[in-house]
């Protein structure tokens, strides 16, 4: 890279800036919007100069939406809590089930093994709308509708195949001899799995966990049909900002900022494991 001539470096800088602007500008704009009132947001022409206000955040956190039509109760914080519960528990459950299952699919050949793995993957390409109606009817009669339990169960359709298939590939990349060596050292099968296989697949598990979390967090349609206001995540709860007196852009922007924060924090946290994965890869050969 050091041998690059000056103009090449300048060009790369310019191109990177354009790409970054293209992708980051909407986020930046939303961030600015979250500190503005509806009036300043909607003025024409739009301006970057405004008097920042925290009223959007105050409204969200206090749960009282003050508009010119009166005071409206919104359950944003409750929704955010629901999102956290649903996503965290779903991903945790998927990890608990999916990581051992991925190991089994990676290491052992068993009857119908490939078929089972593929069936699990196929849940990902069936459009959710296809299964929603029958699912809603079943849930109704089983009393699972509008329960965390029911939603987390359905969320497994999203998170489990993802974790299973990503982590499986990482397990397959670990040399069997490394596990064999640990067994010969005098360790049980389970201990080998926990002390060797899982730590070595950690970058893959981190990546899969991150992706599964994002998918679960962003899910809209399952929660829309299968949950009422009480159990709704933010994705569904955001509909409340479309009020009779207009669309509350400021609050929407603030709620976006608040609701991407957990995913962002998780991504930053998981990043070091992803990077670790890249450096560990060098040893495998």
């Amino acid at each position: 890279m050091g041998s690059d001539s000056g103009w090449k470096r300048v060009l790369r800088g310019v191109l990177l800036t354009i790409v970054a602007l293209f992708f980051l500008f909407p986020i930046f704009w939303v961030f600015l919007m979250s500190f503005q009132t509806n009036e300043t947001i909607l003025r024409i022409p739009p301006s970057i100069v405004f008097e920042p206000t925290l009223q959007n955040y105050v409204a969200l956190i206090s749960g009282k939406l003050v508009s010119n039509a009166g005071v409206l109760e919104i359950a944003f914080m409750k929704n955010l809590g629901n999102s956290l519960i649903l996503s965290v528990v779903s991903v945790a459950l998927s990890l608990l089930l999916g990581v051992p299952a991925a190991y089994a699919f990676a290491r052992f050949k068993f009857r119908l093994g490939e078929d089972i793995a593929f069936t699990l993957l196929s849940f990902r390409f069936a459009p959710p709308l296809l299964v929603l109606l029958p699912l809603a009817l079943y849930f109704q009669s089983m009393g699972l509708i509008d329960t965390y339990f029911g939603l987390i169960w359905v969320y497994q359709l999203i998170t489990l195949p993802l974790i299973l298939w990503i982590v499986r590939g990482y397990f397959e990349d670990i040399s069997e001899d490394i596990e064999y060596a640990y067994r010969v050292d005098g360790n049980s099968w389970l201990r080998t799995f926990l002390k060797i296989s899982v730590p070595l697949a950690r970058p893959g598990i981190a990546a899969a966990m991150l992706l599964a979390f994002i998918f679960a967090w962003n899910n809209f349609v399952f929660a829309l049909i299968l949950a009422s206001a009480d159990k709704q995540p933010v994705t569904v709860g955001a509909l409340a900002f479309v009020t009779a007196s207009g669309i509350q852009y400021g609050q929407i922007a603030a709620s976006i900022v608040l609701s991407v924060t957990p995913t962002l924090l998780l991504a930053l946290y998981a990043q070091r494991y992803l990077v670790e994965g890249l450096s560990l890869g060098a040893v495998k050969g």
């Binding site: 001899d177 490394i178 064999y180 060596a181 050292d185 049980s188 060797i196 560990l280």
Partner: peptide
């Protein structure tokens, strides 16, 4: 018998060191 109960030592062709 399971490998961990045989109490022997083994060195592998590709070394099989624990990378972590």
């Amino acid at each position: 018998e399971a490998p961990e109960r045989r109490g022997l030592g083994m060195a592998f062709q590709n070394f099989a060191l624990y990378p972590h």
